[in-house]
Structures are given as C-alpha cells and as structure tokens.
Design a protein around this nucleic acid. Structure first.
Lengths: 121, 121, 121, 121
DNA sequence: GTGGTCTAGACCACG
DNA sequence: GTGGTCTAGACCACA
C-alpha cells in the first residue's frame, strides 16, 4: 500500500505521511474511512510504531486526518484541511511554474499537465 | 542579494542554494554571468564558507551553475540543467495540481496562477 | 441535549461532564432538578454506560451534582460547588488574562468579554 | 526553573510546554532569548530528551518559540503566536467568566483579577 | 484493541 | 554541541 525508500533523504515519517496523504487525495481512502492502525502499519512496513504515529500526528495537523483515541485515525474532508496547507501549495505552484517556464517548458505543456491531473481524478 | 531566514527549518545551505537558483531563474543573474564568490558571500552573509561551498556544489549538480577552477562559478544556460531536475519538477507539478484540485481549487484559479507566473517573468 | 464530538481529543467522559456542567451553569437544568439517568443518556448518546457513569462521578466530585441512591442525580446549588473548583478557576482566570495581555489584547476587549458573558446569562 | 508534578494527570511534555510558555509570557525569557537546550533541560529535570523535545515542538507549533537546528530554540515575539491560540484563549475566557459568575463571583472581583494581572506585568 | 505517553539509547546532519 | 530522527520496548487510558 505504501512505498518506502530508505535511501531517500526524507525521514521515514514524512514518507509515510506523504504516502497516506496521497491515498486520501486520490480517493483510495475516501473521507471518513479508517486509516490503517498505527500498529498494523508499523508491522506491515517493519517500522517502529513511534515513527508511524509521528506521521499520523503530522497528517492530523495538516487536517488530512483526525484521530479518535481508542478507535483509530480517519480520513478527513477536503474542507477540513488547514488554510496554511493551501497557501503553502499555491506558493509552491507559483515557484514551480516559474522554474519550468525558465527551463523552456511551454505553456501548452503546463496546460496539458493541468488537464491530465483532471482526467486522473 | 540573498535573504536568509534562520527560523526556516531548511538548512542554511539549502536556503543559499534555492536563493541563488532563484536569482538565475528570474534573470537577475543572466546565463554566463559570474556568481558571487564563496568568500564574498560567506562574509556578506556572515556564514561559514563550508556552508556556501556546499550550496554551490548542489547548484552545480543540478546544472544551474558551473565552476571554472581559479575563476569562480557561473550561471549556466537553461539547457544545461539536468534532465533529472526537469523530471522531478514535472512530477512535483502533477502532484501539486492533483492536491489543489482535491482541495477544491478550480481550474480557473490554477490557470490564473499559470498565467500570473508568465507576467512576472 | 448534549453535543459530542468524536474528533475532539478530550475523552468522551470529559465531554459529557463538561456538557452537563454547562447545562447547569447556564440554568438549563436548574438547581435541584434531576439530571438525565445514566441509562437514558447512554442510550440516547449511544455510549457505554460506564463512560456516562464516570462523567457523573466527576461532576459529583466537583460539587455540581449530587446522587441519591435509587433516585438519580440532581443539580446542586452553586454554593455546593467545591472550593477547590473555585480556586482552580480563579487561578485559570489569572493566567488566562496574563497570556491574553501578553498577546496584545487590550483591557477594553477583556472588559467587553466580561460584560458579554454577563448578558448571555 | 520549572516545576513538574508527576501526580498530575497532564502528561509531562504538556507540563514542560506550559511551564516554558509561562516563562515567556511573564518575560522571564524575553523574546529572542535562547531557551534551555533539550539536553540540558532533560538532565536538569531528570527527564528523557524525547519528552522535552516534544514539549518544544508543541511550543513551536503554538508560535511561542522557534527552533534553529544546531543552534537551539528561542522565544518568539507575541505577534508570532498563532491565531488559533488566540481564539482558543478567548473562548476559554468566555466560559471561565460564565462559570465564575454562576458561582457567585461578582463583577468587581473579576475586574480586580483583570487589573491585578495588569500590575504583575 | 486502539492511540497516548514515556524511557533508554543510538546515529546523523548541521554549523 | 545542537536539534532531528529512529528503534525497542513498556505502561496506561479509553471505549
């Protein structure tokens, strides 16, 4: 379900966080559905539970998930995602477009990327 | 010329690298022009030369700069930038668009960001 | 009558306790009136009776309610509330005001909050 | 410098966080000053470094401190404190006043608390 | 069974 | 020397 790369410089908990976020964004885990438990994920990924929990805390802080003690963690609604996250992404987008344009990527190609994302969804 | 933020979680050398890259992308430092020397930057930013050196090495690896022994570092042409960097950015763009769409950002707003980046340049 | 929020980090029994306390404070349940029975609350909230029971015990310890064996629990008089609770609240108030002042909230705004609370009652 | 209570139900890291926050609010640690290092505090309080670090992370999230890797953590400006924290405190204040009024505490006494906080500062 | 907290101890990146 | 990350394993509160 999740792909980890130990050679990546990003810490494990960020990789787990990003992987789970992606599952939520892509609809693999619909809003309201339960995320894998800390323990099950830690054993299936062969990673310490503390590390997994840290990923969940980060995800919760962003607003992509919420946790009910004794019950588990669940995917939140898109409207629950923090405004900070939104602003951060828009900032990233702006910089990304600027650099890609510098590298000679045409507007058409960028448009295509925009629409491609559309279809996948 | 460069703005450092000690409160940023990114290490200093990454901030220097990103700052220089941005100067190149925005055309403040045109292709072929000399980048500030390690010594001058390290003294003007009050930072250890090793840290600056590391930023230059990273920039060179990405292809945004090249070093001439005894002469200094220079801004490279857009076409010199590594293919790896390009692919990475396109991948980022795809994911970014997907997440923003998930968060309810309309195609129009994304288009606007794309065109806005255009004007700034 | 009571609003539970499973996404709240507070345990359920605390939410029940706080909710009941609030009903008493706001006069929705006047002093001497019977509180809902453990059974009725547990079924209407779809919660384990043990959890409800725990909330009642906590409330009783604070002095906001008292239990008559075989009859149920009842809202107590304000004068029955424990001195410990009073002192605790005054301590909280002092700290709260100090922090708000530190954050730049003016005396006027604090005054307004004080008077607003008055009207609601 | 900090007072811990193992009999308190609040987790240690919250006690540390609250204690440090208080030191900042009261001006004992002025804005920009360095907070004790994770290691020094952990040894002086005889607590595991991980627990201390968790307190620092929480404090940073609230905006009361910021961390520079390899340098330490520092007290932030009041204006850096998150808006969420502000709203939370105002909500607490409202509820607190309501309960104290219910318990028979007069407006005069509340005013006094407000002004007392003023003097201490 | 679930998440929440804590300890003990380790290695690494950074400056 | 500093914080950042991770592991291994433990106990507790909650429902």
């Amino acid at each position: 379900m999740l792909q980890l790369n130990y050679r990546d410089s990003r810490p494990i908990y960020e990789q787990v966080r990003d992987g789970l976020r992606r599952l939520i964004i892509t609809g693999v885990i619909p809003a309201g559905d339960k995320l894998p438990s800390v323990r099950s994920l830690s054993s299936s990924l062969a990673i310490n539970p503390n590390t997994i929990q840290r990923a969940y805390e980060a995800l919760e802080q962003e607003g992509y998930a919420y946790t009910v003690a004794g019950k588990g963690s669940f995917a939140a609604l898109p409207t629950d995602v923090s405004q900070g996250r939104r602003g951060e992404l828009m900032e990233q987008l702006k910089n990304l477009i600027q650099e890609l344009r510098f590298l000679g990527v045409g507007r058409e190609e960028l448009m295509a990327a925009l629409l491609a994302g559309e279809e996948e969804k």
